[in-house]
Amino acid sequence: MKLGELFQNGKFVITVEAGPPKGVDVKQMLEDVELLRDRVDAFNVTDQQSSVMKLGSLAVSHLLKERGVEPIYQLTCRDRNRIALQSDLLSAYVLGIENVLCLTGDYVTLGDHPSAKPVFDLHSVTLLLTLSRLQKGYDLAGQELKGKPEFYVGAVVNPGANPLESQIIKMEKKIEAGAQFFQTQAVYEPEKFAAFMKRVEGFGVPVMVGIIPLKSAGMARFMNRNVAGVHVPDHLIAEMKETKDRAKTSVEIAGRLIREMKGLCQGVHIMALGWERYVPAVLDAAGL
């Protein structure tokens, strides 16, 4: 079933990330996808995540589609101008891709090619506006298209952003520009997420809470120091530090977080970052 229909039918939607490899050997990635395909509704195919050069998200989305798996094609504005972005969206449509997640993208100096030219011709909001135009049958220059594409369109929001108010105003702009569902940055504090959801539930768009299973106490501290808007509370760090079986504790924590937040939102987006093999256990622990 299509992603939009799942939300409409009130299903708690589950998505995970499929990270394209650096290189052309897609065996491991496809194995991870096979492992999870019956447990999740769609796979986010990341676009040069963290500005690290990888195999393209368009090609990998197509590979998933060929295997009967539902991809969410992630598209960032970091590496392409408005001509390339529009062309890639048209290409995605003719390849049968139905879901797009529009992002601005990380800055280039955070990745492995810091000397690259940052493009950022458009940004998340203007990319969404552009996509809406394409869906109406016109390009950004006002030229009429021969056949118009149609997508289920997603965007992202950071519930831990500071200040939250400007993040929420931007979320409203994204909805106005055409976003139909949202995935969030990783959340570790259900109380804060509840407060966030209270402010945005009136917008009437499905929100999927972001979950990154902790791999270690060090990873949690690293995120607290370096990832804006993500805060892992001390008691979770302590749990990870004291455990003998990190994977087991990680699964327990992630499962617990999802259980606590699933009543607040319409889905969960799990970013396993290489720990895809534990995702089924996380879903079991979450009762999904």
Partner: peptide
């Protein structure tokens, strides 16, 4: 750095 015109990215500390 990204020339954002419609609001902040998620990266404000």
């Amino acid at each position: 750095p990204k020339g954002l015109r419609n609001g902040p990215c998620g990266g404000t500390s």
